[in-house]
Design a protein around this nucleic acid. Structure first.
Length: 129
RNA sequence: GGAGUGAGUCGGGCGGUCGCUGGUGACUUCGGUUGCUGGAGGAAAGUCCGGGCUCCACAGGAGACGGUGGUGGGUAACGCCCACCGUUCGUGAGAAUAGGGAAAGUGCAGCAGAGAACAGACCGCCGAUGGCCCCGGCAUGAAAGUGUCGGGGCACAGGUAAGGGUGAAACGGUGCGGUAAGAGCGCACCAGCGGAAUGGGUGACCAUGCCGGCUUGGUAAACCCCACCGGGAGCAAGAUCAAGCAGAGAGAAGCGGCUUGCCGCACGGUUUUUCCGAACCGUCCGACUCUCGGGUCGAUCGCGUCGAGGGGACUGGCAACAGUCCUCCCAGAGAAAUGACCGUCCACGACAAAACCCGGCUUACAGACUCACUCCGUUU
RNA sequence: AGCCCGGUGGUGUAACGGUAGCACAACGGAUUUUGAUUCCGUCAGUUUGGGUUCAAAUCCCGGCCGGGCUA
C-alpha cells in the first residue's frame, strides 16, 4: 500500500476488510481482545501499514435484516472514525446483543477498544497522532 | 349511510452531504482517478411441490417403494391455476372441500350398554301354543283316578325389537291393516339403496317416471384394490487453470559376466601429484533437474444483455391461458454491495433482504387505494 | 445456500389409534434429639394451529423451536 492516492479520509475500500477465513483464524488465535457493553474486538498487528476490519454477527441478533443493520453500522463507524483508529492492525468486530444499536455507541466503543488493544501490543506501532 | 364478500395495486416521498458496488467511456506512474449510468422483495422467507441446467447411472417389461386421486381444460411441468359437478356452511354476495373403490378380501370400534355387525331379551309387553295349579260340565270306573270340553290363574318353556335406558353409531320414518303381544308380516306415501330406460351435458353429473328386494351401517389421512406419475444427486452441481504436499517415470553419475558377492571395464571423488599412473572410497538412500497423470489452498468460468423475461395493443377463449405485432434490457456480490447524517412533508413507515435461474404453494405483514358484488336502513 | 433429523412434567425416558406411565428432582407428612437414609402422599407434561376419525402423543397438512451434514 505504498502508493498514495488522493483518497478521501472517509473512504472505505475493500482493501480495509479482512476477506479470508485464514486471516480470521489468525486474529482469533492471537487471543488479544477487548470489550464493553456493545462490542467485543479481537486484534493483532499486520504488516500492511493499514488497518483492516472483519465482522462477525451471530444469529442471536435476529434475522438477516437485523444482522445486516449491525454490520452496516459497524462499517459506517469504522469509516467515519478511521483517523482515530490505530494503523497496522487487523480487527474482528463482534457486536453484543443489544436491542437498538446506534452509530454513536459503536463509534465510541470502536475507538476506545482499538486503542486499548494497540497499547497492549509491545510491538512497535506507529499511531496517527 | 352502516355491515360485509371477492379480486387486485402500492407499501414512505422530495432535496443535500459522505460512502459501497456492477456496467461503460476517458486518463493513468497500471496501484488507481474521474464522467455517465444501474443497484433487493411481494413475500427475496419457509424449503413444501414442479421444471430448466449440471454430473452420475441406464436394454425392455413386471414387481417393490413413494406420491397423486370428482370432471373437463391450461401449462415446460406440478400436489399449481381456471371453469364446471357433488357435499357441507352462510339470510346473501360467497366460503370450505385428500371428493376413486367398503355388494374383491382382511382388520378395527376402548368405556358405557341386555345387545356393536349375517347383533341383542335387562326392564317392559304377551304368554295364542305347550307346561303347572284351581273350579265346573260330560264320559268311564265300585272308588281313587283317567280322558275330554269350558272358564280362571301362574309367568315355567317360550314369543316379541313397538316403548325405556346406554352409546359416536342400536339394522329406515309416518299411517292403516294385522297379531296373544308384536314385527316390512302386508299395503300406501316419504327417505335411502340397486337396476335398466328416456331426455340434457364432451364429462363429472342432473331431470323424469318405471321396476326390484323391503334396507344391504362406519372406517381406506387402517392394510389393501384400481387409475395415473416418478432413475439418483444437487451450483458446496459441474468445467478450466493451478502454489504447496504426496506419487510414477527418466536423467545427471552403471553396465556386463557368472559361482550372488566377487571379477572386468566405465565414471566421479579423495590422497600422492605437473600429467599419466597407483591406492582407497563411491556410483545405495536422499537432494536436484525434467516429464507425466491426479489434485489441495486459491483463481477463472458456471453467474446475469436474452429469459417458459417485463410493458403495451390486437385476436381467440366464460376463464386459466395462448397467438401475432410493437417496445424495453431492468441487481449480480463473493467475510458478501442499497447505508449513515441533515433538512422538509404526511395517513410517522409493517413483515422482511437476492446468492444458479424460473413456475407455484404456504407462512409473516403498519397502513393506503381501486374495482365488482351482497345484506340492512334512509330518501325519492 | 442446499440437504437431513428430532420435539412427551424441572431433567432423563416409556406408551398395538382407546384412562399418558416410570425414575430422579421439587413440595408436604411420618420415622429421627437434628440431619442423611427409608416410607407415604402431592404437584407438574404430549412444541403449536388445523384436518381425518366416535376417539389423535400416535395418522395427514402447515407454523415454531432445536440439532446435524456438505467448503
Amino acid at each position: 500500500m505504498a502508493s498514495s492516492q488522493p483518497e478521501s479520509e472517509f473512504s472505505f475500500p475493500s482493501a480495509c476488510r479482512i476477506r479470508s477465513g485464514s486471516d480470521f483464524d489468525r486474529v482469533y488465535a492471537e487471543k488479544q481482545r477487548a470489550g464493553d457493553d456493545v462490542l467485543l474486538i479481537f486484534g493483532m498487528p499486520n504488516q500492511l501499514g493499514i488497518s483492516r476490519i472483519g465482522l462477525s454477527v451471530s444469529k442471536k441478533h435476529g434475522n438477516a435484516v437485523q444482522r445486516n443493520r449491525r454490520k452496516r453500522l459497524l462499517r459506517e463507524a469504522f469509516r467515519l472514525s478511521r483517523k482515530q483508529i490505530p494503523l497496522g492492525f487487523d480487527f474482528v468486530l463482534i457486536p453484543r446483543v443489544v436491542e437498538t444499536p446506534t452509530l454513536k455507541g459503536y463509534r465510541s466503543s470502536l475507538i476506545r477498544l482499538t486503542k486499548k488493544i494497540a497499547r497492549r501490543q509491545s510491538a512497535p506501532i506507529k499511531k496517527v497522532d
